[in-house]
């Protein structure tokens, strides 16, 4: 299954890319497993925020094909 992964702000700088499509061989992979894969085994930064399909979620969320996952730092709007 394919998952679209997006990175914003300092997380994009850190990853060196704005987005990518990740192909995984099974449904139900968690966000944390996806992170380890895209980040080459690095631990998740403690202040990392996660959204799946534009809703906030946590690292234990299970993913399905077509999901859009976003990783980003704390928000600073307003």
């Amino acid at each position: 299954m394919n998952i679209k992964v997006r990175y914003f702000a300092s997380m994009r700088d850190r990853m060196g890319r704005a987005e990518e499509t990740v192909t995984v061989d099974r449904e139900g992979i968690t966000v944390e497993e996806l992170w380890r894969r895209v980040a080459g085994g690095q631990e998740m930064p403690p202040n990392l925020l996660i959204a799946v399909n534009m809703e906030y979620t946590d690292a234990s969320r299970q993913l399905k094909s077509g999901d859009e996952v976003a990783f980003f730092p704390p928000v600073t709007g307003g």
Binding site: A51, F72, V75, T76, G77, G78
Partner: peptide, 12 residues
Amino acid sequence: INYLKERAPFWK
């Protein structure tokens, strides 16, 4: 305004 600052994804 307070919850916008807390939740809306913007980065300065």
